[in-house]
Amino acid sequence: MPVNSIYYHAHKGKIKVPLTEDEILLPELPKLQQGDLPSFFSTYEEDASVLNMLLDQFSNIHEADWVLCNAFYEMEKEVIDWTMKLWPKLRTIGPNIPSMFLDKRLQDDQEYGVSQFKSEECLEWLDNKPKGSVLYVSFGSLVPLAEEQIREVAYGLRDSGRYFLWVVRASEESKLPKDFEKNSDKGLVVTWCSQLQVLAHEAIGGFITHCGWNSTLEAISLGVPVIAVPQWSDQPTNAKYLVDVWKVGIRPVVDDDDKKIIMRKEALEFCIRELMEGDKGKEIRSNAMKLRNLAVEAVSEGGSSNKNIIEFVNSLFHVQKTENVIESVTTLIDNN
């Protein structure tokens, strides 16, 4: 909801684009810097089309019968309460991930059902690693990373001395350094894995993520602390919440010169040590488990998301019954 709130206020003219203010203050949101906003604000002068499209969706949202959000109330209750004053039929119905990774009420609900691949190699490799010892690394399926950035990540992972499982898309493999070992006792590089199964594995101790919303929800739902490395779109805002609001992650310092933003290996290594060894990491891990418990409660029987889904489904049956009554009365009138 924070990202939707930002877009809504921009649609209403409360955020001026191109951006002119360093700090953005909005109702029930933390103080935001320009870099915490979705990336389309900072690229507006280069290409305004995407941001304009996203803002336009709020031109008639007040006409919607329902607004359903893949989140849960307890994680964003302040902004959700504020937004429900605008859209009374807003309801949170998440996290929308298979039941067996949350409340376990639906035994057959174990995957999204869209994958054609298996993760045996990843899971077998993880089975041989100590509990909480492995860093899972994935930057999503859309944004390509610069070769320089991939090199910094590769050397940062290698030199950290930690176990790591890194998903590098086939189209990106050629960017890996020639002297970087892709399959060793310490690290495994694959082109795909079942992220949910990996995050749920007891060997996983942290998630280096681009902070896409699906990955954000999956990390929260499985209680996995994160190292936040946002790239574009809503990811900077998601990272802001993961690190500063929910306090379930840490964010590396990046070099920002000539519009080229690069996370250096030293910054990544520092965050890995903080997360996996330091006192801050213990606090982050504790917060991650607390948030996971709230996610499980939300989708369990009687939880906030569970109630909202029931309310929505019941409304559909009510509409259907009403339509059936109207149809029956109309038929009766026509026959007389």
Rank of each mutant, 00 (worst) to 15 (best):
L332W: 14
I150T: 09
V168L: 11
V325W: 05
S115T: 00
P95S: 09
K247R: 14
W125Y: 02
V245E: 14
V245C: 12
F40V: 10
G206T: 01
V226W: 03
V245K: 10
S141V: 04
L26S: 06
N238F: 08
D36F: 01
G187T: 05
A239Y: 00
A48R: 02
D279W: 13
Q197E: 15
A239D: 06
D108H: 14
W246S: 08
Y73Q: 08
N335H: 09
F40W: 13
E148C: 00
L68K: 06
L217T: 01
F41T: 03
V198Y: 07
V67T: 09
S184E: 11
T191A: 11
T191S: 15
G249Q: 13
G94R: 03
Q34R: 15
V329I: 14
Q110T: 15
S174V: 14
E23S: 13
F101M: 04
L19T: 06
P38F: 10
I310S: 12
M1A: 11
R264H: 14
F270T: 05
C211W: 03
V134Q: 11
D179Q: 08
A203I: 10
Q231I: 15
D256W: 00
D127M: 00
L294V: 00
F270I: 06
K186V: 13
G156L: 11
T43Q: 09
D334V: 06
K129N: 09
N214A: 14
L165T: 02
L123D: 06
L157E: 03
Q57W: 05
Q320E: 12
H318F: 01
K321F: 14
L199F: 02
E76A: 04
S305K: 11
I309N: 00
D256K: 14
L217N: 09
K247Y: 10
I250G: 00
F270Y: 07
L294F: 02
V299D: 07
S99G: 13
D159C: 06
T331Y: 10
V253E: 13
T20R: 11
C69R: 00
R162T: 00
T237S: 14
I80K: 07
